[in-house]
Write a protein that binds this DNA or RNA. Structure first.
Lengths: 256, 256
DNA sequence: CGCGATTTGTGCACCTCTTCACAAGCGCCT
DNA sequence: AGGCGCTTGTGAAGAGGTGCACAAATCGCG
């Protein structure tokens, strides 16, 4: 567990705190900026304006400037941002200067795909170990890694110094797996199982639920369909609002 | 401007979507509530308090009450919420009363897993068609569906009345695919490709980028490691940093 | 029939995030 | 050298979300 130095701002000592309190919203966007910057670098661009980078990352340019200002000033007025410099800066802030080891638990349908996903490797991570509780899956080789039984987790985690755990098990198995990960010192978990994990203070959990994403889209789809005059009703639950925007009180009972 | 509505007789009419302007944050949480409610229903619970449901969904109880209040009043003071009724209400608001047809484009590593993911089917969606641009993959059967060439998209979309498109292609192919989806009338897209899609007004895009999730975790991991390691020097520890940008362990190729 | 225990629904204050608008800074051209 | 156009960085206003705290409403029970 070597920790690693943040390149200080050029200039006198004490100018820029090494660990600024970045707003969560900013942190969530930095990876997107980073990806866009890599694209620009591949295109041979050496500098980029906030306008250009914002477009590439799909955000407002003022927001981008404010985000970047939180990491210190790395732009030049009248010119823009140095692409290579900014890449280094963001990678440093995100802690990507070291390649973090990831343990993946649950090599089922989704887990199998994650194990083979090269986007992890190309963006700063190394899948260091695969686990599953099903003995039938133990021993299988995926992408050069052999699936191990989940009971081996504590031993392997120590050897590989796992930094992040990814849970791709069924919902019922997720909490015990999370507990095991926490027990071996993992403090960052990415959870694909459709359930809420309870973890001690200091452990970060991010959740990705594919069905939830679709359901959110479904809501907007539903709303859009209701706002436009519904063409051919399929005899289902939905009807259009007759008055459109005008009818403030319209609260028709709509059968199911 | 109150949108009060009595639950009334829930006989044949299960829900009353008055088409409220739900806050986005609320919409994003409703699916989580729905999942928790299904769990409760499976356990045989008929009612649940805001406290209990909030715990099951991993949120603050006041927030949950406010969220639910936006759909109208469906709780009973002193008692709680009727589980079955609330399930029906949320499903209605989310537009899950009809099973929406989903088209999946890109049957590579991740797409293959998505095609086989039963979480979609069990939570209101039907994968209706699979597409890929690679002729070698066309004809393959996954989960009872035959992969078709992406050029068939317009024909099939009409037949199946696709509501949602899922893009699981490489980044370079994502934008053309999105354009095709939009062209055949799809107004909701779930994008797994690591790139920004540009779509016309009225089309909703949600993005899921697995590497970004890891990078956000990496930031917090990095920050936690720095906080625990540095305080040895006392008060203003975070200043004198040896090495500039070319610091020893940094700057290795990450990303493409 | 009324009382107390319980739980919802919500007004309010606080906080974070977003967006606008503009001054300050930088390089280039004349 | 000086002016001009371009771009960053930021103050301030606004929008949206969160959580507390409490009044209102309902049930069960004596």
């Amino acid at each position: 567990m070597s920790q690693h130095r943040h390149p200080g701002a050029p200039g006198s000592a004490g100018a820029v705190p090494a660990l600024p309190d970045l707003p969560e919203a900013t942190v969530a966007r930095l990876p997107e900026y980073l990806r866009a910057l890599h694209n620009l670098a591949d295109s041979g661009d050496e500098t980029v304006s906030s306008e250009g980078l914002a477009a590439a990352a799909g955000v407002n340019s003022a927001k981008l400037r404010k985000d970047l200002s939180h990491l210190g000033s790395y732009g030049t007025r009248g010119v823009g941002y140095d692409v290579a410099l900014l890449i280094g800066q963001i990678e440093s802030v995100l802690g990507l200067t070291q390649r973090r080891a990831v343990a993946l638990v649950g090599v089922g349908n989704l887990g199998h795909a994650l194990a083979g996903y090269d986007g992890f490797a190309s963006r700063g991570f190394r899948i260091a170990a695969l686990f599953d509780a099903d003995p039938a899956r133990v021993g299988e080789e995926i992408n050069g890694l052999v699936v191990q039984h989940v009971d081996e987790l504590s031993r392997v985690a120590a050897e590989e110094s796992i930094a992040i755990g990814v849970i791709a098990t069924p919902a019922a198995a997720a909490q015990p797996v999370a507990d095991q990960l926490v027990a071996v010192g993992v403090t960052s978990i990415l959870n694909f199982a459709p359930c809420v994990l309870s973890v001690p203070e200091g452990v970060d959990v991010r959740k990705v639920d594919l069905a939830i994403e679709l359901q959110i889209l479904s809501f907007h789809e539903h709303r859009k369909a209701s706002l436009t005059a519904l063409p051919a009703a399929g005899g289902s639950a939905l009807t259009a609002l007759p008055g459109g925007l005008a009818g403030g009180d319209s609260q028709e009972a709509i059968g199911t």
